[in-house]
Simulated assay, not measured.
Amino acid sequence: MSESGDSQEAFGEAFGRTTDPLSAFEPVFEELRADPLEFFIEEDLLNSGLKEGTIAGHLVTYQQWREYMSEVGRHPACPSEEHVQGFARWLQEDLGNQSVVTIRQKLQKLNRAYRFWQEEPTLPHTLEYDIVRSARNKIDWSEFEDTETKRPHPIPIEAIRERISEITDLLDYTCVLLQLKLGLRVGEVRNVRFRDLNIPDEELAAVYPALGTHELVTDRPDILYIPSKTERDGNKSTVGRLLPIDEEVRRILVRYLLIRPSVDDEHLPISQRHDRPSGRHINNVWQDAFLPEYGETNEYRAVSSHFGRHYFTTYWKKEQGLQSELVQYMRGDRVGDPVSDGSAMHHYLHTYYRDIEDRYRKDIYQLVPKEPWSVV
């Protein structure tokens, strides 16, 4: 811990204070049917006299704040300074087209809501500590300057097909394909275990008896379960999700599993060196395939392993116009009411998986050549 961090901890212990004071109120907010953001919008924003376009800009910011806080698993009315700073980075890194000026403006819009909560006597946000303003003042904006206007390369799908077809290692190809086709993070790919994946195949079942034994996938063919961050260390999604395995992903997974090294390890991805590929290795695979053509420029940031998740999200949101809550489900973001117990989780997963399965299988983009190619 830094010297300033030591001092902060010492002050907190001495005066009975915490750097995350609103965390204590989150369970209460989660139980309430009332929405503090909607309360602010109705009571303050819509009565502010601002122009319609300005109000619309505020509403976009608040929707993005909801989405980000859903991803990190925190109620939007209960941020810490870390959440506010993370939101600033998320606006730039995940949305990809946010300049420093735009990010500062959005934090000001967020602070407007927070100040309203501070002045509302029925809410627990005290006037003595403005978390949003404090967090904004602590951000090192110089870290944002090099990429402040940069967004991901708009790579045509034909170019994506061509680039990944040049990946000659089958495990590397499988990892990249899972990220592109399912929007998975690197850690989630590395964390896939045999029981999470149900691919009906007699030959595979004989080699991998644990395949498809998780209770959520047992009765569903061609499906993958991605556990939440609370279920499995290394995953970052707020909630678990079930995702369809289409024909081309199934074909590659079967092909990989038949040549996977015989190692006593429950994780699916194992290299010929008998270990799991590291996150850095998978990122290098992406960069070897797409750089230098899709490297960093004055307008775009370099392709990395995050590109697959970005492409997947953009495709479903913008090209397919899928409902936001269904895109959030496929990404592993929190949607609807929080899951309180196992039975509720099963109902939740069933509901959203049922809603996306047919659409996914019908409309997901195709990336794999039908005929065998050079991957070994």
Rank of each mutant, 00 (worst) to 15 (best):
Pro27Glu: 05
Val28Trp: 11
Pro36Gln: 12
Val72Glu: 08
Val28Asp: 11
Val28Tyr: 11
Gln64Tyr: 06
Arg66Val: 06
Val84Ala: 02
Leu32Asn: 04
Arg66Phe: 00
Pro76Ser: 12
Leu37His: 05
Ala34Ile: 03
Ala77Asp: 05
Glu82Tyr: 11
Pro27Ile: 09
Phe39Lys: 15
Val28Cys: 09
Pro36Ala: 14
Val60Gln: 07
Ser48Cys: 03
Ser80Asp: 00
Pro27Ala: 05
His83Thr: 04
Thr54Glu: 06
Gln64Met: 04
Met69Gln: 14
Ser70Met: 03
Val72Thr: 04
Gln63Pro: 06
Leu32Phe: 10
Glu30Met: 15
Pro76Val: 07
Gly53Glu: 14
Gln64His: 09
Gly53Asn: 15
Asp35Ile: 07
His75Met: 02
Thr54Gln: 03
Glu31Pro: 06
His58Tyr: 14
Pro27Thr: 08
Thr54Leu: 03
Arg66Leu: 04
Leu32Arg: 09
Asp44Met: 04
Gln63Asp: 10
Glu43Pro: 07
Leu37Met: 12
Gln85Ile: 07
Gly53Cys: 05
Ala56Glu: 02
Glu81Gln: 15
Ile55Lys: 09
Pro27Phe: 07
Leu45Pro: 06
Ala34Asp: 02
Phe40Val: 02
Asn47Glu: 10
Glu30Phe: 10
Phe40Pro: 08
Pro76Lys: 10
Gln64Asp: 08
His83Met: 13
Gln64Trp: 08
Ile41Ala: 10
Tyr62Thr: 07
Pro79Thr: 00
Asp44Asn: 11
Gly49Cys: 08
Tyr68Arg: 06
Thr61Asn: 03
Ser80Lys: 01
Trp65Ser: 09
Asp35Thr: 12
Glu26Gln: 13
Val28Ser: 11
Glu31His: 10
Val84Gly: 00
Glu43Asp: 15
Ala56Asp: 00
